[in-house]
Design a protein around this nucleic acid. Structure first.
Length: 213
DNA sequence: ATCCCGAGGG
DNA sequence: CCCTCTGGAT
């Protein structure tokens, strides 16, 4: 099975992970599209668990795009400091919110093309916001977990996230695109870890060419 | 390719 | 010490 057609294998993996993580959802906490956008920017090179540690105080102080656009940058940096890259993240969050206020009428845009004009937003962040805030499946979210697992599973030979996304969009049925990412992220955190993958306890080891290597 | 950057695990 | 965590800009 590990050597069968990639498309067959991708769907078998999806089915298996669906049973393994039936309730998997986006694990960031938020109450609006802007809050999801901010949380996703904060999640770069940082666990979602840590993001969820800082966002309650952050959103209590600055709940929407208008307040974030006008907030004190140093205070913003202080509130998000523990997520790392805090100067860049603060600049991106404030810049994105200012643009949302001035160019998008205070609302997070629902078009990929528009989202990509926001500072700190590339395809990964845009895909997360489109899928979870608006239910729009424009592409496949490719983060560090999706990249690592898709490579180990032999579903792509690419290293560029945009090319990996193209490969996955051909292998996975469109309605399952975000389910794929969410469940690979769960499996990547719990079992198929970057450092020491636990192939002995992996439910899809028989579908994986890299299992036990 | 390099930089941003803190926190936790091994 | 080194590596990794739902990346993006230069």
């Amino acid at each position: 099975m590990a050597r069968s057609l990639p498309k067959q294998r991708a769907n078998a993996i999806l089915l298996r992970l669906h049973h393994l993580y039936p309730d998997a959802t986006c694990s960031l906490t938020y109450q609006s599209p802007v809050q999801l956008l901010v949380a996703t920017i904060l999640s770069a090179q940082c666990t979602d668990e840590r993001v969820n540690l800082v966002t309650p105080a952050l959103f209590a102080a600055y709940p929407d795009a208008a307040t974030l656009a006008g907030c004190d940058r140093d205070h913003l940096e202080t509130l998000i400091r523990s997520t790392g890259f805090y100067r860049n993240k603060a600049k991106h969050i404030q810049g994105a919110c200012q643009k949302i206020v001035t160019e998008f009428n205070g609302q997070v845009p629902q078009r990929m093309e528009d989202l990509l004009t926001l500072p700190g937003v590339a395809r990964k962040t845009a895909n997360v916001v489109l899928a979870h805030a608006f239910g729009i499946l424009q592409g496949v979210t490719v983060d560090t977990h999706v990249k690592r697992l898709s490579t180990r599973l032999g579903l792509t030979q690419q290293t560029d996230p945009v090319k990996i996304e193209r490969d996955l969009m051909k292998l996975i049925p469109q309605p399952e695109w975000e389910n794929w990412s969410i469940r690979l992220i769960y499996h990547g955190r719990a079992v198929c870890k970057a450092r020491k993958p636990d192939c002995g306890h992996c439910a899809i080891a028989d579908l994986c060419p890299a299992a036990g290597q």
